[in-house]
Amino acid sequence: MRISVIGAGALGSTFACLLAAEGHDLVVTARGAALPALLSEGIRLTGGFGDRLARPLAVERLTEPCDLALICTKAQDAAAAIAENSAVLDGTPVIVVQNGLDGVMTARRLLPRSDCFGLITIIAAHYEGPGRVRVTTAAQSYLGRGDGRADAATLRWQALLDAAVPTLALDNFVGAQWTKLVVNMLNALPAITGMSVQDVIGQAGLRQLMTWSMRETVRVGRASGVRFGSLQGLSQWRLRLFALAPVWAGQVLPLSMRTRMGTVPNQGSTLQSLARGQRTEIDFLNGAVVRAAAGARTTAPVNARLTELVHEVEQSGVFLTPAEVRGRFR
């Protein structure tokens, strides 16, 4: 099958390499220094899925039709990337591999003739340079769309992906996106401090802030009428209990996430964007909670402040110490 991957970052390169290993014909879009690097060296994947080398066709934009497309850009770049390739993509089944809540809706708006799906992935991958990616956590991915049962089309594409990388079809995909958004609250504090996710969780004060942001996300979701989907051992009733429990008890959640990550430092996708001098997707993570809160006529002050601090680091290039971060919440 001819598969296009839009975006040659950490996840795009990972999926391209693993799908190519299953014999699919891969085309990957890339820009800047990444394009000649992929053309000459291919994609080298190391870490959790083993050592692999793939040599997909690398192009700046798509020129020929494909059977399936994966949108693997950062959330803030998705609309522009889809629009740029829409002449080829419209009518092609599309899977959006992204954090946040808006990816599938964006694809549907820009590609009205396409069948659009979302993929939630728990894979942690570190972008080491063009065509070089190290998987620090090999984990499950989840495919779906809407808030109902997984349909026949979802099951078809799940089977194709699952042959390359562990993938499950998911009911109540929208609810699972909110559950993943709770998990994505891991990203802001590493971007603000320059520390790994594991090190942030290891600091009592930062762990407490992370717990507050997660609890606030659950409360905003509930105020928005969301039925949280089951993901990574989290479920509607577990998250409701988490939001109601004392903060000291709620810190068990980030601590359990740190345990699952293992010992290989996980920078988180937001810190990786900063390290590459790119805009972060914080407005689609913590910022998404703030926007949803406004829509539900409530507030999300912790996530609003975390969003502001990530933008501050983006502009200044200077990380904050844990003490400085805690001081911004007093």
Rank of each mutant, 00 (worst) to 15 (best):
Q267E: 06
G233F: 00
T299I: 11
M214R: 06
A223L: 09
A223M: 08
T298N: 07
E216D: 11
L285C: 06
Q267G: 03
V220N: 13
G225Y: 06
S224G: 10
R207V: 01
R207P: 04
H311M: 05
R222A: 11
L206W: 06
A300R: 12
I282E: 04
T298D: 03
F228P: 08
D283M: 02
T270I: 06
E216L: 10
A243P: 03
S213Q: 08
P246C: 07
R240W: 13
S273Q: 04
G250E: 09
V226C: 10
W212Q: 13
A294F: 03
V313P: 01
G225T: 12
E281Q: 09
P254I: 09
T298A: 03
L253R: 04
L244E: 14
R215V: 15
W212E: 14
A300Q: 05
Q232T: 06
M210E: 09
T270P: 04
L274G: 00
A292Q: 15
R279A: 13
R238A: 15
R207N: 14
R305D: 02
L241P: 00
E216K: 11
V289T: 13
L255C: 09
R258K: 15
L231S: 10
V302D: 03
A293G: 02
E281W: 00
Q236L: 13
M214W: 01
R258F: 04
V218P: 12
M257C: 07
Q236K: 02
N286D: 08
V264H: 13
A275H: 05
G221Q: 11
L209S: 11
E308A: 15
L274Y: 00
A304C: 07
G225S: 10
A292T: 06
P301G: 10
L271Y: 07
L206H: 04
A296K: 13
A292R: 14
G229T: 01
G229I: 00
V289S: 01
R305L: 04
T299N: 05
A243F: 12
G229K: 01
M257H: 11
Q267K: 04
T259V: 15
G287I: 06
F242M: 11
G225N: 11
